[in-house]
Write a protein that binds this DNA or RNA. Structure first.
Lengths: 169, 169
DNA sequence: AATAATCTTGACATCAAAGTCAGGTTTACC
DNA sequence: GGTAAACCTGACTTTGATGTCAAGATTATT
C-alpha cells in the first residue's frame, strides 16, 4: 500500500494553511511552495484540486491566496485522502480485473473482504486526526513535552484518540 | 493509499497455490493465469518475484510449477506486502522530498508520526491474516455458514482475530 | 537423443501518475 | 487606466509502475 504524492503534499499544504488560520489573511502559493520545498506550478495544481473539493477557498488578485474553508478541527486526514483520489474496495476490484472485463472472483471473494476491512481500519484512524491535532502535536513535540518523544519513536501517537475504539465498536 | 498490482496479484497467485497445497504437486503458471484471468507472461513475472523473496519454490521442466515454501498458516498477507514492494515511513519521507534532496520537515515532523502510526495499524491487521484464513473464509462463505454473510457485507471479518488487540497492546 | 512442457531472464512497450510550462483572468494599488 | 501580484486552466513532458515479448535453460517422457 502506497501513499500517493497528492495525498502527502495535499496534507502538507493544508497544514500550512492551518498554521496561519488564526491570522486573518490568505496564504499565497509562493509562500507554501517555499515552505514545503515544492515548485510554484505544482503547488498551484495541488491547491486547485483542494479548492475543487471544497476544502479551501481562494482569493484572486494581488494579496490573494488560500484559506481553509472550515476550522482546522473540522478537517480530518480522511477528508483529504478522499479528496485526493481515495479508493473504495469496489475500485480495487474493477482496477485489478486482469485481462477480463470483470474480476474472475466477483462471486464470493475473500480478498475483497480483507480490503474492505483494512480500508475501514485505515479510514477510522484517519477520521480521528484533524489538522488541528497535527499542529498541536508539532508544538508539543518541539517545545514543551519532551518525555512524549520516546513514545513517538515507538509508533504511538499519544495525542490522538486511541485508534482502537473504532475497530472494537 | 493505494493497493498496488503486485500486492493484489501476488496475493491472489499465492491463494491459488495454497488451495492446492494439500495435493502433492506443483501448480503451473498456465493454471494460475487461467484461474486469475491474467496473461501467462505476467504471472511468470509475479511468481519470479515471489520466488526471489523465498515465499515459494519452483520446479523446472515438464510437470514443473510452484509450491508454497511454508504452510499456508505461516504466510501472512503482511509477508506478501513486504515482498511486493512494502514501504516504511522512512521511504515515504525520502520519496516526497519535493525539489530538495531531503524533506524540509526532517526535524520534528508530525505527519511522519501519523504515517508510522497508520502503517503500524495496517501491518498489525495484515500480520494476523494468513493464506489459510483466506481459504477457510472462502469455503464457509460459499457453502455452509450463510448467516455470516450479512456480517461480511458490513465490513466485519468474523473469521479473523480482532484487529483491535494489536493496537491496544 | 529428440521432444514438449515447463520455468528463467532481460529487453521492450504501454499507461497513468507526477510534475512543468505558458498564456489567461482577476484584483489592489498608484 | 496602467501595472504588478496573485490565481486559473489546459497542454505538455517526464517518470515509474504495469504488462508483453522473445530467446534461453531445465527436465520428464518417449
Amino acid at each position: 500500500m502506497k501513499i500517493t504524492a497528492l495525498e502527502e503534499y495535499g496534507l502538507r499544504c493544508l497544514v500550512q494553511l492551518a498554521r496561519h488560520h488564526s491570522e486573518d489573511r490568505p496564504v499565497a502559493i509562493s509562500e507554501i511552495a517555499k515552505a514545503e520545498g515544492l515548485s510554484i506550478q505544482y503547488v498551484g495544481k495541488i491547491m486547485h484540486e483542494l479548492r475543487r473539493a471544497g476544502l479551501i477557498n481562494s482569493l484572486r488578485g494581488i494579496h490573494g491566496g488560500f484559506v481553509l474553508a472550515k476550522a482546522p478541527q473540522e478537517i480530518s486526514i480522511a477528508d483529504i485522502f478522499e479528496t485526493m483520489g481515495g479508493e473504495t474496495p469496489e475500485h480495487v476490484c474493477s482496477k485489478f480485473s486482469g485481462n477480463q472485463t470483470q474480476c474472475v472472483h466477483l462471486g464470493g471473494c475473500s480478498i475483497r473482504s480483507v480490503w474492505s476491512f483494512v480500508m475501514g481500519q485505515v479510514s477510522s484512524v484517519l477520521k480521528r486526526i484533524s489538522l488541528a491535532d497535527l499542529i498541536a502535536s508539532e508544538s508539543s513535540c518541539s517545545s514543551k513535552l519532551n518525555e512524549q518523544h520516546t513514545q513517538f519513536e515507538t509508533n504511538k501517537l499519544p495525542v490522538y484518540p486511541a485508534a482502537t475504539e473504532g475497530a472494537a465498536k
